[in-house]
Every structure is written in structure tokens, then in C-alpha cells.
Amino acid sequence: MLYILCTFKIKHTLKLYHFIYFFATTWEQHKLFDLSERITRKNINLESKLPLTISAQYGLVDQITFFNNRVASRDVSNYFLIKNGEFAYNKSYSDGYPYGVVKRLDYYDKGVLSTLYIIFSIDKKYINSNYLLYYFNTDNWYKHISECAAEGARNHGLLNISADDFFKLELKHPKDLYEQKKVGEFLKQLDSLIVLHQ
């Protein structure tokens, strides 16, 4: 039987989840590189001309609409191509998110991102996508990033963390994919409830 105690806070309309969970099933701990694959595909064939950015509140969104301006280069052939369902890590910190954010591409079929982002897909045989999405909305992964990253004075807020170090992040998750799915569904419903009452 699944018992979830979930508390949340809303600060400047940015939602950060802190949850404590107890399961009767087995928990496992794996490094992210065991559950995912880094993606470094370039947009050389111009499969997409949609420049994306990460919003802590909204996820991966159209950069031009979000900023009301185009920040990306006109030539996006050397950018990373990200596809729907894949994840991206933005190493820049923002208010309430001192170690950056990890978001999934949900709103578009594909788009392009600067090569400063770390992009990855997951192995769905071992980890549920929604579970991982909400896991990264907690601060459970901050400790690893803080131990690996060193902020340089000339980096304008960009954390000095390599892709290799990022993928060494250890994730705790229920062994049973069904339990992972239930956690993801619960938090998705909670997310919708928060939005409804804002």
C-alpha cells in the first residue's frame, strides 16, 4: 500500500515540491547514467527551427514567445536537437532554484537548445518519466550538484558542472514501475490542483 506525505510551497508563483514517501515495496538507488542516455545530436539537417529555453515554472518553452525576443543565433544548425519526452538540464541558477532546473519537453514535437544544456533520454524499462519529472522538482538532487559544481566569477551564474558529474547523480526510486507511476500521477494531479486554485 502506498502512503505519500507531500508538502509544497509556492514562492513567486514557482512551485517547488518537497515530498516524503513510504512504500511497502522495495526501493532502489541508481546513478542517472544507469537510467538514461546523454543526447548530443546536432540540428545539422535543420529538423527544427524552434529555439527553446527553460522556464522553472513552465518547463521547456518557445524562446521567442517567452522573452518576446530571439536570443538564439539565426543559424541553429549547431544547436542540440531535443525531441518530445526528452529531458534537459539548465545549469544556470535562478531565484528559488540555486542549482538550475531539469525539465522535460512536453509542449512541442521537437526544438533546439544551446549546447550549454545537458540533454538526455530515459530508459523506460527502469524509470517512469513522470516520476523523474517530479523528482527533479524537489531539492533531493541539490546536494550532489553542490558537491560537484563551483561557480566561477565570470560565468554569469552558470554552474561549473560537467556532464560526467551530472550523470553520476544518484536517484532513489521504487523498484516497481507501477509504484513510480502512482507517485507521478499523484503529483501531476496535485500540480493541476495548485494551478486551478491560483
Rank of each mutant, 00 (worst) to 15 (best):
A24D: 12
R154F: 14
N128D: 15
H173F: 11
V71K: 07
F19N: 00
V101D: 02
F67S: 02
N43H: 06
T26H: 08
S94M: 10
F67T: 06
T40N: 14
K168S: 13
K172M: 11
T26Y: 08
E47W: 10
F23T: 12
Y21G: 03
N130K: 15
E86D: 07
H18S: 06
G96Q: 08
L2I: 15
I127S: 01
Y107P: 00
N68L: 07
D109E: 14
K188R: 12
Y131G: 04
V102Y: 02
N130I: 06
W141A: 06
K91S: 09
S92D: 02
L81H: 02
Y97N: 07
I20Q: 12
I127K: 00
I118R: 01
L113G: 04
V112D: 01
I145L: 10
L171V: 15
G100A: 05
N43P: 08
G100I: 03
L177C: 06
R38K: 15
Y117W: 11
I20P: 02
L190P: 00
E170T: 15
Y134M: 05
S36F: 09
D176Y: 03
Q29E: 14
Y3V: 08
Y17T: 01
C148M: 11
D62S: 06
T26V: 10
L193N: 06
Y108R: 00
F136P: 01
K182C: 11
K49Q: 12
F136Q: 01
Y97W: 09
Y117V: 11
Y21L: 14
K31F: 12
L113A: 04
E37W: 13
Y108M: 03
D95F: 13
I64N: 09
P98C: 05
K15E: 10
Y97R: 07
V61D: 03
T115M: 10
G184K: 02
N78P: 03
F120T: 00
D75L: 03
S55M: 11
V112Q: 01
A150R: 12
D75G: 05
I4C: 05
T65I: 15
F87R: 03
L113P: 03
W141H: 14
Q57E: 15
E37V: 14
G157S: 09
N68T: 06
K188W: 11
F120S: 04
K9V: 12
